[in-house]
Computed example of a mutant assay.
Amino acid sequence: MDTKNKNIKTFAQHLDKRYGIKGTKERTEFEIKAKSFAIGELIKEERKLAQMTQEQLAQKIGARKSFISRIENGHSDIQLSTLYKLIEFGLGRKINLTIQ
């Protein structure tokens, strides 16, 4: 093996070092934040595909623009009922959940 590659770590090893191994409090908190961010990105993309502004989506579901912004940026926990309202009523899409 080439000596300059000895210190290369996998992404999983990097996460273990930075956030702790799976199952630890720190790692669990990181994974929850990562999922929240991913859901926000999905909502943002669907909103843009629907050619809606954050303000328009907020008005459609009876919320404030700042709430939509916090969700899209992964800075707000979202209840399942709110997620349903956002996707089904706000964006006219369907939710399909898969548990693995």
Rank of each mutant, 00 (worst) to 15 (best):
L80E: 01
E26D: 03
E45Q: 10
S36N: 06
I78S: 02
K6I: 15
Q13H: 14
S76C: 09
K44A: 11
L42S: 14
E72C: 09
E46W: 07
R70H: 12
H75P: 03
S76R: 14
K9P: 02
G90P: 01
A12K: 13
N7C: 04
Q59W: 02
M1K: 13
I68F: 00
Q59K: 14
A50F: 02
E72S: 14
G23T: 04
I78K: 01
T28A: 11
K17Q: 15
K44Q: 15
R18E: 12
Y19H: 14
T28R: 10
R64E: 14
I68R: 00
I71E: 00
K22L: 09
I78W: 01
R18L: 12
T24N: 05
R70A: 15
G74Q: 08
Y19M: 07
A12M: 11
I61Q: 02
R27Y: 00
Y19V: 11
Q79T: 11
K65S: 10
T3G: 08
T10N: 06
R93F: 01
E55F: 05
G40A: 05
K60C: 10
L83T: 01
T3L: 07
S76T: 06
Q13S: 13
D2T: 15
T82I: 03
M1R: 11
G74N: 05
K60A: 12
K25R: 14
T24D: 06
T28P: 03
M52W: 02
S76Y: 12
E29K: 08
S76V: 08
T53P: 11
S81P: 04
F30E: 01
K4C: 14
N96E: 09
N5T: 15
I95L: 05
T10S: 15
G74E: 03
R18A: 13
K65W: 06
E41S: 15
R64H: 15
N7W: 02
S76Q: 11
L91F: 00
N5W: 08
F89C: 01
M52P: 02
T53Q: 12
I99P: 02
I68H: 00
Q100N: 08
K25Q: 09
A63V: 04
T10A: 10
T53E: 09
N73I: 07
T82Y: 01
A34F: 05
S36D: 04
K6M: 14
Y84M: 03
Q79D: 09
T10Q: 07
S66A: 12
R64D: 13
E88Y: 02
R47Q: 10
F30W: 11
G62I: 08
E26I: 02
Q54H: 14
H14K: 14
K44V: 05
L83C: 04
H75R: 10
L97C: 08
K6P: 04
L80I: 13
E41W: 14
K60Y: 10
G62C: 08
R93Y: 01
L80G: 06
Q54F: 10
K17A: 12
L97W: 06
M1L: 11
I8W: 13
I21T: 05
N7Q: 15
F67G: 02
T10M: 08
E26Y: 02
